[in-house]
């Protein structure tokens, strides 16, 4: 059984103009210990998926449809209290480093310990702090910094502390939402290496979210390309990179001349993303697509299998049979 199986997930935000379809019909699955990366421009719905999985959508967010089978249980059907106990114990989340994800008036070590104590109060504070020491060693933080406050840490150290915290309850899934976006390149590489090593060591499933396709290429077995709330291409890393099928994926990749070489930032593709309150009937990438044909506009795109496990949501793939 897969660790996580998401079927036809649709998440809307209630806005004054109507329902904004931030995530529309997204399906994917993740095996135990495997890693899946979501890539796409800002605003395509990556964070919304993460928050949806955590059951932490903002008050105006609603799951319109879908199933989130996690360890065989549909998380959309469990009570709020049960969901609270799934959080961090089973699914942890690493947020963007730029965000002040640590409480500024509490000691870092205590915040890490708190994650354990919430789900296992009988552990006791003393033992929890002992366990924090081990976690600090694990992620390469000096244990004498346990009693420091967040502002005494550098950006990289804060992110290491959060990684330590994410491991506190030995979860089976970690969602990492742009965990290195605010860090400089050297620190970013160290943190990514750290996450990869720990994932292997503890056999944790990872969902890695980034707007930077090169990072996802380094990190993940499977890749999902997202555009305007939809998954538009999905498959094993090698397939997606070696034979990208969707025009959007190709546009993304061409903005990175050599994936193994120097890392450049995503060059935005000309044009704007469609209005998500009234998304177009046909292909959502139509206005910006270099390969559009009139049919793309009317026909609702269907998934086309490219090779086993590799598929794309595009009319032309359907017709060209590529």
């Amino acid at each position: 059984m897969a660790l996580l199986e998401v079927e036809d997930l649709c998440i809307d935000y209630k806005t004054k103009n109507g329902y904004l379809k931030a995530v529309d019909g997204v399906s994917f699955s993740l095996e135990r210990g495997a890693s899946l990366g979501f890539v796409g421009e800002s605003g395509c719905g990556k964070t919304t998926i993460g928050m949806g999985l955590m059951g932490m959508l903002p008050p105006n967010g609603v799951v319109r449809r879908g199933r989130i089978l996690f360890e065989g249980e549909d998380l959309l059907r469990v009570s709020a209290e049960e969901m609270r106990r799934v959080r961090w114990r089973k699914i942890a989340m690493i947020f963007q480093a730029a965000m002040n994800a640590l409480n500024p008036v509490q000691r870092v070590g205590e915040q890490v310990a708190e994650a354990m104590l919430v789900h296992n109060p009988s552990l006791g504070k003393e033992k929890a702090l002992k366990a924090v020491e081990e976690l600090f060693e694990l992620v390469g933080l000096q244990t004498d910094r346990i009693r420091d406050y967040p502002h005494q840490y550098s950006g990289g150290m804060k992110q290491r502390a959060i990684i330590a915290m994410s491991l506190a309850c030995r979860p089976s899934l970690i969602i990492a939402d742009e965990p290195t976006t605010a860090l400089d390149v050297i620190v970013q590489d160290q943190i990514l290496a750290e996450i990869r090593a720990l994932q292997k060591e503890f056999n944790i499933g990872i969902i890695f979210i980034s707007h930077d396709i090169s990072i996802v290429a380094d990190m993940c077995h499977d890749i999902g390309i997202m555009y305007a709330g939809q998954l538009v291409e999905y498959g094993p890393r090698e397939d997606v990179f070696d034979s990208p099928a969707h025009p959007y994926t190709r546009a993304l990749l061409s903005s990175f001349p050599t994936l193994t070489g120097k890392r450049t930032d995503l060059v935005p593709i000309a044009g704007e993303t469609p209005d998500l309150v009234h998304p177009p009937e046909g292909c959502r990438f139509y206005d910006r697509c270099q390969e559009q044909i009139p049919a793309c506009r009317e026909k609702v795109s269907r998934w086309v299998a490219i090779s086993p496990g590799h598929k794309a949501l595009c009319c032309r793939c359907e017709m060209d049979g590529r």
Binding site: M56, R85, R87, N100, A101, L102, E114, A115, M165
Partner: peptide, 13 residues
């Protein structure tokens, strides 16, 4: 604030 998100993600009541 973001640390409130963290606290919620940690499963706090």
């Amino acid at each position: 604030e973001d640390y409130i998100l963290t606290a919620r993600a940690k499963g706090l009541e």
